[in-house]
């Protein structure tokens, strides 16, 4: 279903990145989840995991968290590489991408939620694969 995505910082996610633990499980713990309102959570069929997809067709799997802090029709994902897979780069001539108020698709998903390193390899380095393989003798 269509839903509005807001991303933003949380103190715990902040503590992980400021503490240089960006390649640890703590980062997955604090940034790879999706806050969902109780109504939407029911409607999605009480999922453990959700798949969030943007208008470009990019999608990410996240842990689903039910919370009454959210209004119906909105989700929240903490700032980080997971959220940024679906954040669109359209800046409306301001330089600032649409980190908030972005219409995305949400559906029940299945694990695994990727850790930061696997996520970077799988999603971010796809286009640059030849350069990476040449420079780092790296295959993934």
């Amino acid at each position: 279903m269509d839903i509005i995505l807001n991303t933003g910082s949380t103190a715990f996610q902040g503590a992980v990145i400021k503490g240089g633990r960006k390649f640890t499980d703590d980062y997955t713990q604090e940034a790879a989840y999706c806050d969902i309102s109780p109504e939407d959570f029911e409607e999605l069929g009480k999922p453990w995991f959700v798949k969030v997809t943007n208008s470009y067709g990019d999608s990410v799997i996240l842990r689903a968290k039910k919370t009454d802090r959210q209004q119906r029709g909105e989700i929240f994902i903490p700032r980080g590489p997971w959220a940024n897979i679906v954040v669109t780069p359209v800046t409306e001539s301001t330089g600032s991408p649409r980190y908030k108020n972005l219409v995305v698709q949400i559906e029940k998903g299945s694990s695994p939620v990727l850790g930061p390193q696997e996520l970077m390899k799988k999603y971010y380095t796809k286009r640059a694969r030849p350069k990476w393989e040449a420079n780092r003798k790296w295959t993934a």
């Binding site: 240089g20 980080g80 390193q117 970077m120």
Partner: peptide
């Protein structure tokens, strides 16, 4: 690497990137 939208980071993966970094993470990666 951890804070830009995917398309921008994909471009970063294609070009030479020089960083001043204190800890491992997407940017250093």
């Amino acid at each position: 690497g951890a804070h830009l939208p995917k398309i921008a980071v994909e471009r970063m993966c294609e070009i030479p990137v020089v960083s001043i970094e204190t800890a491992e993470g997407p940017q250093a990666f």
